[in-house]
């Protein structure tokens, strides 16, 4: 993926209002792969007793990262929208740690992109959550 396209994709994703609200940063993007981070934030706590981040915030990160990897695919000409997303929650993210999501577009057709994603905290060996999803491939008309 050429550098100009990478820059545009990064700017586009970091400018999305909800991604900004959650503090998401694009670490790497290109050729159907994206890595996006979301820092720990007390406003995102889902369990006040433990301080663990709410699953909903992890879903938002996974969805953003999935869409980003589709947009960065060489065969995807434009935008994308989520068709469906399944998230498996393996464990609560350790409080205080940044959550990083990686998404890869495993297959793309004229109309559909298939995505697998993983969310991790500092312990990269034990994912916090994994996801599989299908995204639309928007053709420029």
């Amino acid at each position: 993926m050429d550098e100009a396209k990478v820059k545009i994709a990064r700017q586009f994703i970091e400018a999305i209002p909800h991604s900004r609200a959650l503090g998401m940063k694009v670490e790497e993007i290109g050729d159907g792969f994206a890595r996006i981070t979301m820092p720990y934030d007390e406003r995102l706590i889902g369990d006040p007793k433990t301080g663990v981040i709410h699953g909903g915030a992890v879903s938002a990160l996974m969805d953003t990262c999935g869409g980003a990897c589709v947009m960065s695919h060489p065969e995807a000409p434009g935008g994308t929208a989520t068709i469906d997303l399944r998230i498996d929650y393996m464990r609560g993210a350790t409080p205080g740690q940044t959550i990083v999501a990686e998404a890869r577009c495993t297959h793309i057709t004229r109309n559909v992109a298939f995505v697998r994603a993983t969310a991790m905290d500092d312990d990269r060996e034990n994912p916090v959550a994994t996801a599989t999803g299908a995204f639309t491939v928007e053709r420029k008309s």
Binding site: I16, P17, H18, S19, H54, G55, G56, A57, S59, A60, L61, M62, D63, T64, G67, A81, T82, L85, I87
Partner: peptide, 12 residues
Amino acid sequence: IHGGVTAAFLEV
């Protein structure tokens, strides 16, 4: 609306 917002809303 962001798909993640919709997902989070449903989950909550």
